[in-house]
Design a protein around this nucleic acid. Sequence first.
DNA 1: TATAAATTAAAACGAACGTTTGATTCTATT
DNA 2: AATAGAATCAAACGTTCGTTTTAATTTATA
Lengths: 180, 180
Amino acid sequence: MAKVNLAAVNYHFGNKESLYCEILRRRLRSINQRRLEKLGSAIEVAGDNPIPLTLIIDILARPLFEPGNNTKEKNGRSSRLIGRSTVEPLPFTQELLATELHLITSHFSRAIRKHVINLQPAEFMWRLNFVIGAMHHTLATLHQMTTLTRGLCQNDDYEGALRHFTQFAVDTFTTPPRRS
Amino acid sequence: MAKVNLAAVNYHFGNKESLYCEILRRRLRSINQRRLEKLGSAIEVAGDNPIPLTLIIDILARPLFEPGNNTKEKNGRSSRLIGRSTVEPLPFTQELLATELHLITSHFSRAIRKHVINLQPAEFMWRLNFVIGAMHHTLATLHQMTTLTRGLCQNDDYEGALRHFTQFAVDTFTTPPRRS
DNA sequence: TATAAATTAAAACGAACGTTTGATTCTATT
DNA sequence: AATAGAATCAAACGTTCGTTTTAATTTATA
């Protein structure tokens, strides 16, 4: 596979690092663009009403759980790549990831916050972090779910994963804060 | 750093792959051993009563959030390594990770399940997966929390992270199932 | 069609890496 | 103290990998 001369790669992208960044950037932008488009439409439809939290989460998650958009790559390839890059921060991708992540969180947290107005900002960020972690981890391990769950969940069940994750994320955000 | 002749490594471990596996195995076993010891004590103390869910989660998480036990390595090194290996499954670590993970889940799910008896097995596994994902992701990104949260959370705040995570995990497991 | 530029292909270069070798030092046993 | 085995070291070996080079081919432009 990858039937392409490596010299061509260097000719077009300079070096391997730039190629990796470029791929990551393309996929991130593609996914985030779809997210923002959908969120925009939802805002338009909702008008002054808050958008249903389930819909917000779905918009946030679905582009990652769905197969690649333009290319006919295999299911979940992009999400695996993104999930990895967030965990192992190579020096050159760090900035890109931070920028794109902030682009998303700034838009979505505004939408989500209407449902959880009694949550302190830091508490909200912690929960957002947990939700994002759960999402990426799920996408990264979805291909071996059968083994990990001893048959209780199926491999590559993107549909089921998305359904369970959405419910989980909604619950996470709607749980009232505890004073302890 | 790592002031050790590379030949010595090969002499003792054969090759780099074995060395990596050995380190991962040691750390995993060390952490899981402490977990099981603590859980055993808690079971003993509790007698027939169920162990408080908060305690179960604390036992599950704290060994990962605490600094390395025997060695005087820097905070969170082990957890970073483990978090990584779960996400990028190298062929030779996969079996090790699955075994150790199952060892933990089998013990802890039994303890947790007493609090969430109305949860279907698959649903429970999904939530467990989300919780574990959130935990690993948090540990992996804790060193850049300030950037990621725009100052709302602090870098390397293992104490705060553990506190928030514990509450989050308890809430995740105690949320009643929805029929949708 | 002629010419220049862009792209591709094949080969080779050079640095980095994992590993092995052979000599040397340390440790333990008698 | 003498000897054998284990452990360590500096050096070198062989491979892999990212990159560059050179030539051939395609594409665009006049």
